[in-house]
Amino acid sequence: MQSIPLFESQNLRLTPLEPEKDAPILASWSYDLETAYQLRQGQPARPMPAFEVRKVCEQWEKEAREDRQFLFAVHSKQSDAILGVIRICWMSWVNGAAYLDVLFNKSEDWQSIASEALNMALRYAFEELALFRVTAVVPGHDQAAADLYHQANFTLEVRQRQAIYWHSQNWDKLYFGMLRPEWKMQQAGVLA
């Protein structure tokens, strides 16, 4: 058994989400409509008050209790501030498949933080949950999110034409996927 810690990286720590404490902070991020879109769970995006975000968090917790998703708050080791939320959700145990949803405060350095956290989430998905594949969905206008998955060596698998409406125009919805053998090969390369 290897001893790489699952819940800790160089700068970050994965912890349980605490709806009471964290919901007001997540709510303050929801003026960013991409974040709001993730929190609104399919409804048209708008900024969300803390009490609504708290309900979403509690719904996530419920699904986590039923093993339908795995839910992590991402904290800075240095300041202990919450920087984002990572979910491994829509679990399909028979197919060994799930979706990955990352939600971050769009600070200046959010991409490097998200990338470090994503790596922990992938390790957890493949090495702890024994998944065969994960999917991440990105709106076509969100280049930073697409870059995040490209850089993590995901493959762009699906481009749903005009499935997103954003800033007065239609954009494609992108589906990225990573398979277990691809993750293992990447790890072998990293560790070699």
Binding site: G96, F132, R133, L156, E157, Q160, Y175
Partner: peptide, 26 residues
């Protein structure tokens, strides 16, 4: 309906994996 991609090896049935095809019509 147009083919818009496939999520590789998404489904596990009959001891092997299969793709999930995405299609759409505008």
């Amino acid at each position: 309906f147009q083919h818009e991609g496939r999520r590789r090896q998404e489904i596990f049935i009959d001891d092997r994996r299969w793709d999930d095809l995405y299609m759409g019509i505008l």
